[in-house]
């Protein structure tokens, strides 16, 4: 990686273009502003380090952020019981946020596919690329996710 001024200028531009949308999408995945910012910035650093060798930095960033969201989500699942206990013991039960609740209940791939389709307006091919999966998987994930949300609503 060349830490030249040219690279910094190019990356800075890329950073400015991507930051807002990436954080907002990560927020939809995680429902946690700080975690979303952290995931995006760790991915940004990875992109910056490999700026000279990555052909499609935006696609790389998409995958990195989504992978980060998946890891954070996995950790969080295991914490939900204790969170509930603390909340029950010490403060009033949090008000339900229906969309966040519904999204958080979906399996990772279903949730990611829905966010990418209905928030980021990605095509099936773009979603498959971002989730590193076969395009044929995307449709069923979206369908199942929507079905689960409809049922819950």
């Amino acid at each position: 990686m060349t830490n030249s001024k040219t690279v910094d200028v190019a990356f800075s531009s890329f950073y400015g273009e991507q930051l807002d949308a990436q954080v907002r999408r990560a927020y939809l995945m995680l429902s946690d502003n700080e975690a979303a910012n952290d995931v995006v910035h760790e991915a940004m650093i990875a992109v910056y380090r490999r700026w000279d060798t990555i052909d499609q930095p935006a696609a790389y960033l998409n995958r990195s952020v989504l992978n980060g969201c998946r890891d954070v989500g996995r950790r969080r699942n295991s914490s939900s019981r204790l969170l509930a206990r603390i909340a029950r013991n010490d403060v009033a039960q949090p008000a339900s946020d229906s969309l966040a609740d519904l999204l958080s209940r979906l399996p990772y791939h279903h949730r990611a596919a829905i966010v990418l389709r209905f928030y980021s307006d990605f095509s099936t091919r773009e979603i498959a690329e971002a989730l590193d999966c076969a395009p044929g998987s995307v449709g069923p994930w979206i369908e199942r996710g929507l079905l689960a949300m409809k049922k819950a609503l």
Binding site: Y15, L19, Y27, N33, A36, Y48, L99, I114, Y119, L146
Partner: peptide
């Protein structure tokens, strides 16, 4: 339903606050 979903996602994403940490990245 899908239209409603899009609207809800837009509204919720609007809550997020991106933090500019460019200086620590580069």
């Amino acid at each position: 339903f899908e239209s409603r979903l899009m609207q809800m996602l837009d509204e919720r994403a609007g809550i997020a606050q991106p933090h500019d940490r460019l200086v620590s990245v580069i």
